[in-house]
Write a protein that binds this DNA or RNA. Structure first.
Length: 668
RNA sequence: GCCGAAGUGGUGAAAUUGGUAGACACGCCAGAUUCAGGGUCUGGUGGGAGCAAUCCUGUAGGGGUUCGAGUCCCCUCUUCGGCACCA
């Protein structure tokens, strides 16, 4: 996205002789391939050559009047697209270095002095602006790029042809495709010394001063005698004054702070005034990460050694709305600070995650303006009863009152639930339309975890937890495998792309699996978070039938492994409840001090795999085989399946595709 | 106009390498819980047909590549974000 702002474009600078003088005029173009089609020239009203060109010509007065008028127009308006193109002939001519023809030089309102060289070779046939300009002022046109179909003529063109094609009317370069011609003509220009390859960047202006209080003061003093003087280093930093009147009217509030504004000139000691504009807060956010490395250093902005240690930022997370401006400015600052030799960092951020914004619909009463969701009564304004307009779903903002008060949710559900739900609702890079539906689900999940631990903690407390996979029965193996699959999934989801939503879903699956396995002591718990009612715990599903001794020990070990993994994995998402449950499980200390669990490859391996059977790519059956079964065996197994036999009866099998441990596709 | 992202059930979303579309939730439906309500538990839940087994259909729309496409290619539409005559 920053590409638009940096605006790198590769092209060439080309010199044009001005007829009857020794002067030359240089243009920048990305379309040197259309040089033979350049039939006139447009220059910016600010171009320094304008005065020279018209000097002594009878058009001088007229042109100057035009230039003056344009330069007094608002620049943003003047350079807005769709603005009427205007120009005036200077009376001077440039010489096209290829065709040697004379090209009238025009001053045009749409040519910008700050981009390129402030002068443009106009190729009306292959540039839409030049086309419009040439048509308006009846200027010559020359077709030099033919489309691949060969159908273009000067008469049938309704607009400029700006696409790829091949060259015509271009002497020795005829019939060359545009992309090659760019290189060949650039080579020619360089060889002949009339031009060179050039790269242009269009950096946007950044006016950093603001007429507001909250911002860094600009350390400049204005003295009538000594002009503009920077505040001496010993007086830095300039701090914002406290005696300020915020009227909401007029210019900067700092103007009202007399003690701030009136100062002695550091040079002549006469009376002087301070700059009262402050800096855009983007200035501060452009280097704060450097300051963070040395926050307590009161002698300088940052300590280069600390910057060397900490920078660049490994992972930067910010809202998508800052993807262009803030990040571009930060990169710019970093490079400037590097260029003046204070740091060695080239790019400030190694990885960027732009998170989506949280949005919500806006509500508006025709009489009382923006409304909070709770200002509604039966879908009407609670104050006047008027019907409420439901607006667009947009970025949450206090001014539009389309916000959710986290305190209320936290009061009702607790911080863990609110945190868990926010992370579960959507992946982080996606925009999220907030809805309260679903918070209940997060609360229920945490309640289930709470109950599970309470029920089982007693039974697993004395377990040593040693597990031999070969000694486990199939239910135990199943849970043990699920536990390790979950560790893998949660770890990878977090590390790879912060997809907390799928990590949480995986933990929910683990909880479901543990519930199925549950063998804990029957227990009735009364949980009463504010307004949530109580939970009666039903009898456990299994467990009673299980044998004693070894069997029971394995069960407890597997259960313990599952519960401990669950609590550790869940702790970053619901830290408070997990810390509590960690001790309920009989552990000392905080779960936050426990190393992140590692999955065991051996626990994940399965003996049996489910093979999908397709006929012509459509799902027609499933069989379970042991993992790693040879292709031939799998094929045989599929073809012997009763249903498959029926379905393919009487049809010729053209081909059978086997994907190992996954599927068989029978093509008939 | 240009650049970028996206479009999947009633809803939020999964599908990470081209291989069972809809995981996990929300909502809804049914049953259980010795009153109701709430809560909890169990089961069901893309659409259509069928008593059923099952079949057809389905990832914005249209084409294509492939044994096989939400995923790859081409075209179209819609939404969102950014930019604004940059030669």
């Amino acid at each position: 996205m920053q590409r638009n702002w940096i605006g790198r474009s590769a092209g060439a600078e080309i010199d044009f002789k001005i007829a009857g003088t020794n002067e030359k005029i240089t243009v920048f173009t990305t379309r040197q391939d259309t040089l033979f089609g350049a039939t006139f020239m447009s220059i910016s009203p600010e171009h320094p050559l304008v005065k020279k060109l018209i000097k002594g010509k009878k058009t001088e007065k007229e042109v100057m009047a035009f230039v003056e008028r344009i330069m007094h127009e608002d620049k943003i308006m003047r350079t807005a697209e769709g603005m009427e193109k205007e120009g005036i002939f200077t009376g001077a001519y440039a010489i096209n270095p290829m065709t040697k023809k004379e090209m009238p030089i025009w001053v045009a309102n749409f040519v910008l002095m700050e981009y390129g060289t402030g002068a443009v070779m106009a190729v009306p046939c292959h540039d839409t602006r030049d086309f419009a300009f040439a048509k308006k002022y009846n200027l010559p046109m020359q077709l030099v790029i033919q489309n691949p179909e060969g159908t273009l003529t000067l008469d049938n063109m309704k607009d400029a042809y700006v696409d790829e094609g091949y060259l015509i009317n271009s002497g020795e370069f005829n019939n060359i495709p545009t992309s090659d011609a760019k290189e060949r003509i650039a080579d020619y220009l360089e060889k002949e010394g009339i031009g060179k390859r050039s790269i242009n960047y269009r950096l946007r202006d950044w006016g950093i001063s603001r007429q507001r209080y909250w911002g860094t003061p600009i350390p400049i003093i204005y003295c009538d005698k000594c002009c503009t003087i920077p505040v001496p280093e010993k007086d830095l930093p300039v701090k914002l004054p406290k005696d300020v009147a915020f009227t909401g009217k007029g210019a900067s509030p700092l103007l009202s702070a007399k003690g701030f504004v009136d100062v002695k000139c550091p040079k002549c000691n006469g009376s002087a005034k301070r700059e009262t504009d402050t800096m855009d807060t983007f200035v501060d956010s452009s280097w704060y990460f450097l300051r963070y490395t040395s926050a307590k250093d009161d002698t300088r902005p940052f300590d280069p050694e600390k910057v060397k240690y900490w920078m660049p930022v490994d992972q930067y997370i910010g809202g998508i709305e800052h993807a262009v401006m803030h990040l571009l400015y930060s990169r710019f600052f970093t490079k400037v600070i590097r260029d003046i030799g204070l740091i060695k960092v080239d790019e400030p951020f190694t990885n960027l995650l732009t998170q989506g914004m949280v949005c919500k619909e806006t509500l508006r009463c025709p009489e009382h303006g923006w409304l909070f969701p709770e200002d509604l009564k039966d879908n009407r304004c609670a104050i006047c009863g008027k019907e409420v307009e439901r607006g667009r779903v947009e970025k949450m903002s206090k001014s539009k009152k389309n916000v959710v008060d986290p305190d209320k949710l936290i009061d009702n559900y607790g911080a863990d639930t609110v945190r868990l739900f926010s992370l579960f609702a959507a992946p982080p890079e996606k925009y999220l339309e907030w809805s309260d539906q679903g918070v209940d689900g997060a609360w229920r999940f945490l309640s289930r975890v709470w109950v599970l631990i309470q029920r089982n903690s007693e039974a697993i407390r004395d377990t040593k937890g040693k597990i031999e996979i070969s000694e486990l029965d199939s239910a135990e193996r199943g849970l043990y495998r699920k536990t390790h699959l979950t560790i893998k999934k949660v770890t990878e989801d977090i590390e790879r792309d912060f997809h907390f939503n799928t990590a949480i879903a995986a933990m929910m699956e683990l909880v479901n699996a543990i519930s199925q396995f549950d063998f804990g002591t029957p227990l009735t718990l009364i949980l009463s978070p504010e307004g949530r009612g109580d939970i009666k715990i039903p009898s456990p599903h299994g467990g009673e039938g299980k044998g004693e001794g070894e069997k029971k020990a394995n069960q407890a070990s597997v259960m313990k492994a599952a519960l401990e993994a669950l609590i550790t994995l869940l702790s970053p998402f619901a830290p408070h409840i997990c810390d509590e449950l960690w001790s309920v499980l009989g552990n000392k200390g905080s779960v936050m001090d426990i190393p992140w669990p590692k999955y065991n490859e051996g626990a994940i391996k399965t003996e049996d795999v489910l093979i999908v059977i397709q006929i012509n790519g459509k799902l027609r059956g499933k069989i379970t085989l042991s993992a790693g079964t040879a292709e031939e065996e799998v094929k045989k197994g599929a073809l012997e399946d009763e249903r498959i036999k029926e379905l393919i009866a009487g049809k010729a099998i053209r081909k059978v595709i086997v994907v190992k441990d996954k599927l068989v596709n029978i093509v008939v």
